[in-house]
């Protein structure tokens, strides 16, 4: 059994007196696509930076690709491709100059060809002389992604790589990720999109600096232990009003003219919904709990903890 690509224990990072990452332990197998999820400000970017050796942790240990994150930053930098959340290539260099720069820093052989192939794959070959700053947001993301896989890293850390990218490009991107993973590349990707989370082998959910759920999508949904029922009919809006605050009801979300009602206490939830359905003349049916339902539940719990 080979060592996992990422294995960190009790990583902690404080900014001033705020603990932004609190004893996070994470393990990602080689060849795995690991999703990294959590609300805004929960510490995803900070955790990724700790693992790339870009921040000095205040506590914890870990190894990335077998290299110690505290002492072996140089090796990590050579073997990891990190795509930052915010575009951080040089806007005053052209697309091609940016790629040349990256190729040089990684001391790649056949730099000229690799850069040309990358440009062609991206479909940016004819625009290679354009300043990177003049690209649209989505194209900047695609350029950044291409730049960080160019040196054939063994591990990719992608921080919201598809934010602002159109659906077709996102589909292509995920196909590419799966292809690379099949060849043995490990990927850690943070995202806010549920469909992307579902395309990961395993997901890790972080909230207020603490890792609160992990596993395959099915495991995370199952472990959440939620019950979901759908209410349909004419008067779903009134049903929603009546259900608010009812026993066992934690979330009510309208989807078109159906209502998703989610709760942890299945029996109480069903009783409440049955009563309201009768009062409003709507129908109820059991449904699968979605990953999104689970995340919203987790976010709500975390806020309760904070209060």
């Amino acid at each position: 059994m080979t060592e996992p690509a990422i294995s960190v224990h009790d990583l902690t990072k404080r900014f001033g007196d705020r603990t932004v990452v609190d004893r996070v332990s994470l393990s990602v197998e080689r060849g795995e696509i690991a999703g990294f999820l959590g609300p805004n400000g929960s510490g995803k970017t900070t955790t990724i930076r700790l693992m790339c050796g870009l921040l000095q942790p205040d506590g914890g240990t870990g190894r990335v690709l077998g290299h110690d994150i505290l002492t072996d930053r140089g090796a990590i930098k050579r073997e990891v491709g990190y795509m930052t959340q915010r575009f951080s290539f040089y806007e005053d260099l052209t697309i091609e100059e940016n790629l040349n720069f990256v190729a040089g820093l990684y001391r790649m052989t056949r730099r000229r060809e690799v850069v040309r192939e990358t440009l062609q794959d991206l479909g940016l070959y004819s625009r290679r002389g354009q300043l990177a700053g003049a690209l649209s947001g989505g194209w900047k993301q695609r350029l950044a992604l291409a730049a960080c896989v160019m040196h054939r890293p063994k591990l990719l850390m992608l921080d919201e790589p598809t934010a602002g990218v159109d659906p077709k490009a996102r589909r292509d991107f995920w196909d590419e990720i799966h292809r690379l993973a099949a060849d043995g590349l490990t990927v850690l990707v943070s995202t806010h999109y549920m469909d992307e989370a579902e395309r990961c082998h395993r997901i890790n959910y972080i909230s207020y600096g603490t890792l609160v759920a992990r596993g395959t999508v099915a495991e995370v949904v199952r472990d959440a232990g939620l019950t979901t029922v759908i209410v349909t009919g004419e008067r779903t809006a009134e049903a929603a009003r009546r259900l608010a605050g009812a026993a066992g009801v934690d979330q009510i979300a309208p989807f078109g003219n159906a209502l998703h009602v989610v709760g942890r206490d299945g029996a109480a939830l069903r009783a409440s919904v049955a009563r309201v359905a009768e009062e409003t003349g709507t129908r109820m049916a059991d449904a699968e709990t979605s990953l999104e339902d689970v995340f919203i539940q987790l976010m709500g719990d975390a806020q309760d903890n904070m209060a």
Partner: peptide, 14 residues
Amino acid sequence: ERGTMENLLSMPAT
């Protein structure tokens, strides 16, 4: 200030 430091530091330049 331009945010390019994060990228520069994540690459293997000494």
